[in-house]
Amino acid sequence: MGERMSYENKDKQRVFNEEFMPHIDAMYNFAFRLTLDEDDAKDLVQETFMKAYRFINSFETGTNAKAWLFRILKNSFINNYRKKSKQPNKVDYQEVESYYNSDSVNENITTDLRVETVQHLIGDEITNALNSLDVDFRTVIILCDLEGFTYEEMAKILDIPIGTVRSRLHRARNLLKEKLKQYASSLGYKDKRK
């Protein structure tokens, strides 16, 4: 990185305060949904803002600051937390699992997830279902459904093609439906139907 002094120090702080800081709540929420831990989330947000300040010259004023910040946060998360937990790639497993389940569902289980059932579920059940998804699937749902990013913005944040964003989102939603269905039947919502 060359020393491209696009911003004077005073401007840096102004851009930082006006364009970056307003997103702190969304960033914290995203960080918490990824790490599922308050302290880790705090550290992650802090680290993201420090990086944002350090690389502020690569941010163009007036462009999408939120997407830019989310991308830094996501990359920091991968660097810090993924490497540590040397888990096998769970996404592959869950994808296989979801195909398997979707086949068996049609044949064996007669209970479908219904709109009324979803409306009866409370926050905790939905939160738990979301948190139980592997982080890659969780991430696309958070970005799309909670934060309202477009597919194109998500592709940039996640560094993957739009087609992959869409198929991952589709799979994530199917998995979420499966989880909600499990909750619903374990809680006996099935019986509420006539």
């Binding site: 709540d25 929420n29 579920l121 409370i122 926050g123 939905i126 939160t127 459904d145 979420l176």
Partner: peptide, 14 residues
């Protein structure tokens, strides 16, 4: 489901 996510997921206060 999308509506439920939006309205029910607890926002953890910063």
């Amino acid at each position: 489901i999308k509506d439920s996510l939006k309205s029910h997921i607890k926002i953890n206060g910063t």
